Amino acid sequence: MDVSKAIKERRSVRNFKPDPVPEKDLLKILDAGRWAPSSGNTQPLELIVVKEPKTKEKLAKAARGQSFVSEAPVVIVVCANIPRTERRYGERGRNLYVIQDTAAAAQNIHLMAYALGYATCWVGSFHDDMVAEVIEAPEKIRPLAIIPLGKPKKIPKTPSRRDLENIIHENKF
């Protein structure tokens, strides 16, 4: 699939069919996250794949009651292994680079899922401590995104975007 098409047509979907995601497709999607750039190639990405219904329900509660999280056949919790980047970059690595690195990985996951005919939604509104508890994250492993994954029941309309000329600034703001 053309990357430009995937970028422009991918949507945040909040309703999923119960169809399972074949393991070969899931591995392609997860592998796309692995290939994202990371600061100094520190690779802080950790992915928790959740298929168990009770665990998905707990994640939905931790995601401030966003029930669609538990309705997806697969939920991916994107986490940052803070020490991997902190060792090299200190506070900036801990507070910024791990977020940038895992965000790049999450975007790759969304785009590959779309290219394979799946739907996703970037869930960032959640109680960090609750999600960490649900996935039994060790200390210094920080959940940064929850991505429900599955076949879409329906695709939402394309949201409006700001005009390009209104967001580009040359040389200074």
Rank of each mutant, 00 (worst) to 15 (best):
V13D: 01
R64I: 08
P53H: 04
I7Y: 00
E52V: 10
E165G: 01
F68A: 06
P156V: 01
K154M: 04
L96W: 05
Y97F: 15
H169M: 06
K28P: 02
K157W: 04
P143H: 12
A119P: 06
I146L: 14
A32N: 10
V134Q: 09
S70A: 15
P143W: 03
V21N: 01
H110D: 03
K140A: 14
N41E: 10
K5M: 06
P138W: 02
V69T: 07
Y114L: 04
V74G: 00
S67G: 01
I99G: 01
P22C: 05
C79M: 05
D25I: 04
K61R: 15
A63F: 11
C121N: 14
I146N: 03
S160L: 09
N41Y: 10
C121P: 11
V49D: 01
L111I: 11
S4Y: 15
W35E: 03
G124W: 04
V13A: 04
Q100E: 10
Q107D: 11
K157R: 13
K61T: 14
M130V: 08
A115Q: 14
G124T: 11
G117E: 06
V3H: 07
A62K: 06
L47T: 09
T158P: 03
L116K: 13
M1P: 11
I155S: 03
E52Q: 14
